[in-house]
């Protein structure tokens, strides 16, 4: 079993249409694929010339309502590359380099760090109130993670939704004034 947990956070609950709302989506993939991502299996895969595990993440943010509106659609890939390390301090022959979605090569110091760098993270988003629309809304994040078949794991896919975050977009900053008062 795999488990994908997703948490959506916003910096505020109410914004004016010209202000920006900042959202953060935290994600964590756990379960079988994470457990099997260990040095023993990296070595086994490497021995079979199975050198790269690729995780495709697809993250969407929706505005809930009668019609579900897509606010953001982000795809990114992380790669775990198994290689023969000549680090004399490492008690293993085969180790992993993780290339994150920004193209940064990361050499983790231990298995736990490797798992955390590969299966966890957060993404930040920013929307103007007018992109969301006036009124009260529920925002939700959806993520799919998929991977291919490798010597230590079958191909798989998992999808999850985040908690709902309620947002109100208003026209003016002074909440005591309504539109009619200002116009008069």
């Amino acid at each position: 079993m795999n488990l994908l947990s997703l948490k959506l956070e916003s910096n505020t609950k109410r914004i004016v249409r010209d202000e920006s709302l900042k959202l953060k989506v935290y994600f964590k993939l756990s379960g079988l694929v994470r457990d099997l991502f260990n040095q023993k299996n990296w070595e086994e895969a490497w021995d079979k010339h199975d050198l790269t595990l690729r995780m495709d993440y697809h993250l969407k943010i929706y505005k809930n309502g009668l019609i579900k509106k897509l606010l953001s659609d982000l795809k990114f890939v992380r790669k775990a590359k198994f290689y023969w390390s000549r680090n004399p301090d490492l008690p293993y022959r085969i180790w992993v380099m993780i290339v994150d979605e920004d193209g940064n090569p990361i050499l983790p110091k231990d298995e736990e760090e490797a798992k955390s760098v590969f299966f966890e993270g957060f993404k930040s988003f920013s929307f103007f109130g007018k992109e969301i629309g006036l009124g009260e809304h529920g925002l939700i994040a959806n993520m799919k993670a998929k991977w291919s078949k490798h010597s230590f794991i079958d191909k798989g896919e998992i999808e999850a939704n985040s908690n709902k975050v309620s947002i109100e977009v208003i026209e003016y900053k002074d909440y005591s004034l309504n539109r009619e008062t200002i116009l008069s």
């Binding site: 050198l51 790269t52 590359k81 290689y83 023969w84 290339v99 193209g103 090569p105």
Partner: peptide, 13 residues
């Protein structure tokens, strides 16, 4: 170096 290192691939021996 960083850009190049992301293409690291071990051979078939």
């Amino acid at each position: 170096y960083k850009k190049f290192s992301t293409y690291w691939t071990d051979g078939k021996r």
